[in-house]
Structure formats: C-alpha cells, structure tokens
Design a protein around this nucleic acid. Structure first.
Lengths: 237, 237
DNA sequence: ACCTGAACACCGTTCAAGT
DNA sequence: ACCTGAACACCGTTCAAGT
C-alpha cells in the first residue's frame, strides 16, 4: 500500500475554510510573528505587519491576542522554549547555573530584540520564564544558598542576564550593534581630544584598553555573572 | 532706587521675535521636552508632542536636533547632570562608589522612563554620562583595582545600575509599576495553583517570600551592586 | 537661516457590519 | 464566533515653499 497523499481536512474541523486561506489561530499568528521577528527584529513585529503577512486585517488578531504586548510576550516565551534546565548536581551546581544563565542569554540574543520584552515586563510570567526561574532557584538550593538569599540572587542574576542580552542586540542585527559600538567609541575619542588633557583622565587612561575590547559578546556576560556568583559566596560567609 | 521691571529684550537679540512666541532653540526644546518627560514619561516625548507644546510644527525641531533618539539622549544627559562625583578617598572608596552608583540610579528613576534611553544606547556618550563613567573608574582606581579589570567592572556596574533603574520605572509612574508587579505576582500564584504540586516546586517554595518582598526599590539595586563589588574583590585576590 | 504646512508611510486599537 | 473595513487618534521624517 503506497503512502497516500494527505487528505484535506474535513470542512467541519476548526482550521479549514472555503477560501483556502490559512485559518487564523494563535499558533498561526505566532508562527507568522516569529518569522518576522527572526528576519526583521522586534520592531517589525507590529499588529499590522503580522496581519498583512497572514493576509488578514489587523483588527482580526484581537480575537486571539489581547494586544501587542501580549503577542510580544508569547514570542519571548517561544524564544525561551529550547533552553534546557539541568537536573541539579550539588558537586557542580555553579557551572550548571552559569550554563543555564548563558544559555538563556544566547536564546534571547538569537531572536533579535526579544530581550527588550523581558526587560519591559518586570517579571515575565509565561510558562518558560517560570520554568527557567524555577531552575535557577533549584540550582541555588543545590548550592546551599538559603531560600531568602536565593530569591534575591535569582532576581539579580535574571536582571543582569536580561540586560546583557538586551545590550547585545541594540539596533537589531549583531552587525548593526557592532557598528553602532564602533561609532560610539570613536565619538568618545574625539570628545576627549577636544577636552583639556586633565579632564576625564581615568576614562582617557582606559582608552587604549577600550579599543582592543571589541564587542561585549557573551563573554562580557559571563564576567558579570561570575562576579555576582563570587559576590554571593563572599557575602554568605 | 526701586527695582525696575525687567526690560523687554531688544529686537535684534536672538530669542526675541515679533510674534511674541518663544523662539525655537535647543535649550527651549529641551526645556519643553523635559517638562513633558517629568509629567507624562518618556513615551510622551515625541517630536510632534514637543512641537505642539511649543506652538510650532514637528518638522521645525529638525533644525536643532538630528532626530528623536538624539532628543532623548540629550534628556538623559540633563537627567544625569545633578549627580555629584566625589573626590576619591582611598579609605572609603567602596562607600563612595556605592553612593555614586545609587545616586545615578536615583537620578534616572526621577525622570520616568529615561533609564530606557541609557539601556538603548549601548554606551552613552554625552558629557554627563562620560563624567560619571570617569568618576566610577577613578574610584575603582582608588580602590587599587587594576585598569583592565576596572574597565570591565565599570561596564558591568553601569549595566546593572541602568537595568535596575529601568526595571523600577516600567509602566511610567512608580504607582503603575507597583501595580503591574502586584498583578504579575498574583498571576504566578494562580498559575502555580493550577499546576500539579510537584512542578516548579522551588518557585512554589519561594512564593511566601515573594509576597513579602514588596517592591524592588533602590534597596534591590544596592544588593546587586554589593554582590558585584564583593565579587570583584573575591576574584582579584 | 529658519520655519511652515503638507505629505508620505507608517502605528495600536475599536467597532459596526457582515458571514 | 470570528472576520472585515473603516475609522480614530496618533507616530517620525522629509521637503517644497515661504519669510
């Protein structure tokens, strides 16, 4: 028996309609929105743009999504979905935690601009955000950090991670971000040359390091996270 | 001799014109923009809104300001102006640094939404931003932190500070922010009740602490900064 | 040199009317 | 129940035309 062509869906199931056009549904909307996010960045994910992409009117989306903020939050949730939360191993909880946090940052940086959503929403409450938060708390617990401190630390770590991911993706594409950084550093150089040489002397001294620094990258993120974890250890002793 | 009424400006000085309307100038634009920022938040600071406030057309502003991003950056600079950079005292550099950083955060939180500008602009390059950065580097230097580490640390500290200030002012006014936080935490509670009790167990355990946490406040900021500074000390040993 | 008014190409959200 | 089309109240930016 040869594999038959997939049959068309019967007319009574949700998802089929006579016009042959893609039925509107939350999943279809998110798929479309995610495609736009990946290719053009968060700013391009507007209600009108998504609707146009689906061949429908902007108003139609409101039957499936409360507003643009909710759509963006659902995209954030989808972006976080692939991040794996490990089974805590007390022997190497610190490395596991670093891996979880940098992995989350990588997942956000992969979808241009999505970190801003996390930044904007105080505490993200979507399933995957909560799953990751629970994972962080579990690892801190495995590390013997008392609950009260653990919660505060998790907040700080999440804040740092989100901010670093955001910073890495200003201007949309990584290329644009790197170019912008370049423009900025040369602006500083120019300004310093203009100033009397005794002003902003410490910034001036750091100039040469500045040049070689290249981009922030995920390594810049690691440094901050390690400082925070070292600080956590230092102050709980 | 009684104090005379201030004389009207002579007709040939910049700033006077026959229509009696406020002459357009960068200072006047910034004044108007700052008034709107303070009363309605950053989102209300649009080219059209500022122009309307000054009784002119939106296009007219472009003679004095490159674009909206530049206007916002100038507002950030103005917001940072009152922050005082101390003379470094090696005996208490750490306290001085904490004071400088929290002071900067306070200055940003005072102008609703302005922290977002700092977050959006990778490295702010306006005079006051550079002045504060120089101050941070000076204090780290006074603390004996080697230049290379000091630069990295200053970056991390600035990132943290900005992110914390941003988070404190999501939703514009502090009231709205607090309300939003309330809504979010109760959302989490609801979601956890819905889930089987063995899922997200660490988050669940933290719930009660969560409730008593109130708002992030400037104290939440201090914790992160202290963790970072402790971490800096721990790792430079 | 600076300002105006209008235009262009967009936004988010609502809502009566249709199917 | 869901979708459409139009409307409302906005955006940033450009540019010919005026003074």
């Amino acid at each position: 028996m040869p594999t038959a062509e997939p049959l068309p869906p019967p007319p009574w199931v949700r998802g089929a309609n006579k016009s042959g056009r893609r039925q509107l549904s939350l999943e279809a909307i998110l798929e479309s929105a995610m495609r736009i996010l990946e290719s053009e960045g968060l700013d391009a994910v507007t209600m009108r743009r998504v609707a146009q992409d689906m061949g429908t009117a902007a108003g139609s989306l409101y039957a499936h999504v409360r507003n643009k903020a909710e759509l963006h939050e659902l995209l954030l949730d989808a972006a976080l979905a692939p991040v794996h939360v490990p089974e805590p191993d007390p022997a190497r909880w610190r490395d596991q935690l670093l891996e979880l946090l940098t992995g989350t940052a990588r997942a956000m940086v992969a979808k241009p601009g999505i970190a801003r959503v996390s930044m904007e929403t105080a505490i993200p409450t979507t399933p995957n955000a909560l799953r990751l938060m629970d994972g962080v708390l579990a690892l801190l617990d495995a590390g013997g950090i008392p609950p009260r401190e653990a919660l505060a630390a998790a907040d700080v770590l999440a804040l740092h991670l989100t901010a670093a991911a955001y910073e890495m993706s200003v201007g949309g594409t990584p290329d644009a971000a790197a170019e912008e950084l370049q423009r900025r550093t040369s602006q500083i150089t120019q300004y310093l040359e203009l100033l009397p040489p005794d002003r902003l002397s410490h910034l001036r001294a750091a100039q040469n390091l500045f040049e070689t620094e290249e981009e922030a990258d995920v390594d810049g993120l690691r440094l901050g996270l390690e400082m925070l974890l070292d600080g956590l250890r230092a102050r709980s002793r």
